[in-house]
């Protein structure tokens, strides 16, 4: 039996809503890409052409030699992440994209800091390093080089701690991320 014309079975237009564009938080996108010439140029080109700004980008091999992983972080307050992933998906060499759930993800970044370390401040910097579970990897008369691993926030905070002492140089890898394994029952 067909419905009466105009019954409540129909969808009321007032009830329709368009999905929200901006999420307002940081996103980590993990891409599996074919290890082919020019893949990185395609991705970088797409971002510049569409006006998307990448905060960090890390590229490396995976367990499969034909596949590389690219980890990107972007600001979901500025960019419609949905549009970014859909555009990325159109690249033929991009196999898979995961918009990592913050709660279900282990994300790590590594950074190297060369900090000026006069004799009087040396102990304090080493103390920071200790608190941050960082390693001193190079020492000279005037400076210390510290390796820190952790979340982006942790590295940001370490940077804030040592900056007053004189940050000579900093190198950061950008985050890489992997999903947490589900708890086994």
């Amino acid at each position: 039996m067909m419905g009466e014309p105009g019954t409540q079975d129909l969808v009321r237009l007032e009830d329709l809503e368009a999905s929200r564009q901006l999420t307002g938080r940081k996103h980590i996108l993990s891409l599996l890409v074919e290890n082919k010439p020019g893949v990185l140029a395609r991705i970088a080109g797409l971002f510049s052409r569409r006006g998307f700004n990448i905060d960090t980008l890390a590229v490396g091999p995976t367990e499969d030699p034909d596949v590389s992983r690219i980890t990107l972080t972007l600001d979901g307050a500025v960019h419609p992440i949905d549009q970014v992933t859909k555009q990325l998906h159109k690249l033929v060499n991009v196999i898979k994209i995961r918009d990592m759930e913050p709660d279900g993800t282990v994300a790590r970044e590594m950074a190297l800091f060369r900090v000026s370390a006069a004799v009087e401040s040396r102990a304090e910097i080493m103390q920071f390093a200790d608190i941050y579970e960082a390693k001193i990897v190079d020492v000279s008369r005037r400076s210390l080089t510290v390796e820190v691993t952790g979340s982006q926030d942790k590295i940001d905070s370490f940077e804030r701690m040592v900056r007053p002492h004189g940050l000579i140089e900093m190198a950061r890898t950008g985050e890489v991320a992997i999903t947490k394994s589900r708890p086994e029952h």
Binding site: L16, S19, Q83, K86, H89
Partner: peptide
């Protein structure tokens, strides 16, 4: 309100949000 039928997912809500 907009219904948007397109074979390219990236066209959807690119310029005008689709309901």
């Amino acid at each position: 309100k907009f219904v948007h039928i397109d074979v390219d997912p990236a066209e959807i809500s690119k310029n005008v949000p689709a309901h």
